[in-house]
Amino acid sequence: MHGPAASGWLLVALCATTGAYCLLRMRSRVEEQRRTAGGEALMGFGMAAMAVPAAAFTPPSWAWPVYAVVFGAAGLHALWAARAGTRHLHHPLGAGAMVYMAVAMAVSPGAGQGHPHGSSGIPLLTGVLLLYFTGYVLVTGVRLVPVAAVAGDRAPGAGEASGWGDRPELARACRLSMGIAMVAMLLTM
């Protein structure tokens, strides 16, 4: 291991790849996939940008408030979309966590010199977010475990011509990877 820079670049690659796949999901024939894919792509690319190691690029001081505004708007949009039910409350919570991290980076003493580690954020809020995202990762991981099909049951979507972008297990894997990345980013707070 080459230290924090190597893990930072791995996090950037994971988040950027996830964001790119989510962009491809926006072409899906399944309406629910298209609806959630845009927000997830924004989250993936935003997490990738925030995870760039400070040794490679130090964002200007105005970047953190811009992140906060963009993810605040995305969170409000996701909250508005979730008003019909509690199914997608994870999206506004994820956007809120991104706003929290951006604000913590903006107000931290080392914000102009790079990414502060371990000295920013409110410990209780960081802990609550860590607990939530750790639980989310565990639950999402369990949902990826294959279940044996009962004889005679058709798999959801069986018989339909669906592309690889419409596969729910790939969408869950992307959400799982973004959840893991969120835990990793929150651990540095």
Score class of each variant (00 low, 15 high):
His2Asn: 15
His2Val: 01
Ala5Cys: 01
Ala5Asn: 06
Leu11Val: 04
Ala16Arg: 07
Thr17Val: 12
Gly19Pro: 09
Gly19Thr: 03
Ala20Ile: 01
Cys22Met: 11
Arg25Asp: 02
Arg25Phe: 07
Met26Leu: 09
Val30Trp: 00
Val30Asp: 01
Arg34Gln: 10
Gly38Asn: 02
Gly38Ser: 04
Gly39Ser: 04
Glu40Tyr: 15
Ala41Ile: 03
Met43Ile: 12
Gly44Ala: 08
Gly44Ile: 05
Phe45Gln: 12
Pro53Asp: 03
Ala54Ser: 15
Ala54Lys: 13
Ala54Met: 05
Ala55Leu: 12
Ala55Cys: 07
Ala56Glu: 13
Pro59Ser: 05
Ser61Glu: 10
Trp62Ala: 13
Trp62Asn: 08
Trp64Lys: 00
Pro65Cys: 07
Tyr67Trp: 15
Val69Asn: 01
Val70Gly: 02
Ala73Gly: 09
Ala74Gly: 14
Gly75Pro: 02
Leu76Thr: 09
His77Thr: 03
Ala78Ser: 15
Ala81Ile: 02
Ala82Asp: 15
Arg83Asp: 00
Gly85Asn: 15
His88Thr: 08
Leu89Gly: 14
His90Thr: 03
Pro92Asp: 04
Gly94Glu: 05
Ala97Leu: 02
Ala97Tyr: 00
Ala102Leu: 07
Met105Glu: 12
Met105Gln: 12
Met105Thr: 08
Val107Ala: 08
Gln113Pro: 00
Gly114Phe: 12
Ile122Glu: 15
Ile122Arg: 10
Leu124Pro: 03
Leu125Ile: 15
Val128Gly: 05
Leu129Gln: 07
Leu129Ser: 03
Leu130Pro: 02
Phe133Met: 09
Tyr136Ser: 04
Val139Asp: 10
Val139Gly: 07
Thr140Arg: 13
Arg143Pro: 01
Val145Glu: 00
Val145Pro: 03
Ala149Cys: 01
Ala151Met: 00
Gly152Arg: 04
Asp153Gly: 02
Arg154Met: 14
Ala155Ile: 05
Ala155Asp: 05
Ala155Val: 05
Ala158Ser: 15
Gly159Trp: 08
Gly159Lys: 05
Glu160Trp: 06
Ser162His: 14
Gly163Gln: 07
Trp164Arg: 13
Gly165Gln: 02
Arg167Ile: 04
Arg172Gly: 02
Arg175Lys: 09
Ser177Asn: 00
Met178Phe: 02
Met182Ala: 05
Val183Gln: 06
Thr188Glu: 14
